[in-house]
């Protein structure tokens, strides 16, 4: 295959990855890894490098739009970034000692979990009673609703912080944003309304991915010939996805994509189990 053909096919694939990633809320990185490994037979280490770039591009692009609306809780994001960046650095370290087949199996499992999380019932309620720690850290805030600002408070800050560290480890190990784990920490543990948790999670993904991307770049995991179509394709797809989201109700699409992603997850686990990586 010539470089031109490779670029054109990959740009199209990355565009779809960005589109699916933004419509399901899973992020572009999650689709880039199976695309590169299963379709193009690229070594999973190059795929992880490319996925990190996709995650950063996706997060920075989308976060800038959400911040405009004033939903993102910047203080909460900053505080939890301590957990995710420590986790990301640890994950990038662990990656050196983890066989690629094991990484593929872990990736498949996280993918299954993420697909399930996308379809779960979301936390809509805003807490009126928060914990002391949350007040001390100034994490309680409000976001614009249809009838004026809605205030919310947080609890279980320690529990959320721990899950965030795990999310960081997964992000550093696999190159994905692990948005599903981040939302689990904020939504289920800290009881934050899902509008705030999804946008704040997205806001944090860029910084988390950057913390391990600096390691992977120096390890030589980032190849320019792969990076070029992936970065442009994913960004284009994410942009289209964000436009579509305001016009259509993505619930049906979400279910279709989640079923598709479940198949991909089993494929990754099977191939990892068969030592195909």
């Amino acid at each position: 295959m010539s470089i031109l053909t490779f670029t054109l096919i990959l740009i199209l694939g990355a565009y779809l990855a960005g589109l699916v990633g933004s419509l399901t809320g899973l992020g572009g990185g999650v689709v880039v890894i199976p695309l590169l490994t299963l379709v193009f037979h690229v070594d999973i280490r190059y795929a992880i490098g490319a996925a990190l770039l996709a995650s950063i591009a996706n997060s920075s692009g989308a976060a800038s739009a959400y911040i405009k609306e004033g939903i993102t809780n910047i203080r909460l994001g900053m505080f939890l970034e301590i957990a995710t960046t420590i986790g990301a650095v640890l994950g990038a370290l662990i990656a050196v000692y983890t066989p690629t087949n094991t990484i593929a199996i872990i990736f498949g499992s996280v993918l299954l979990f993420s697909a399930a999380m996308t379809l779960r019932k979301k936390n809509q309620e805003a807490l009126t009673e928060g914990s002391k720690l949350s007040a001390m850290l100034k994490l309680d805030s409000s976001y614009p609703g249809p009838d004026g600002p809605i205030s919310y408070k947080l609890k279980n800050v320690g529990g959320g912080f721990s899950i965030m560290t795990l999310a960081g480890v997964m992000s550093g190990l696999l190159g994905i944003g692990s948005g599903a784990l981040k939302v689990l920490a904020m939504d289920t543990a800290m009881k934050i309304p899902f509008k705030v948790s999804t946008t704040t999670s997205n806001f944090m993904i860029g910084v988390t991915a950057a913390a391990s991307a600096v390691v992977y770049l120096q390890r030589g995991y980032m190849d320019p010939i792969i990076a070029f179509p992936v970065v442009l394709g994913v960004l284009g797809g994410a942009f289209t996805g964000a436009k579509l989201l305001t016009r259509i109700n993505p619930q049906t699409l979400r279910i279709i994509f989640c079923v598709a992603i479940t198949f991909v997850a089993f494929e990754m686990i099977y191939n990892g189990y068969q030592h195909n990586f």
């Binding site: 950063i56 860029g206 950057a210 600096v214 770049l217 970065v231």
Partner: peptide, 8 residues
């Protein structure tokens, strides 16, 4: 790629 990583 470097610019993209530096942005966040």
């Amino acid at each position: 790629v470097l610019l993209l990583i530096i942005t966040p």
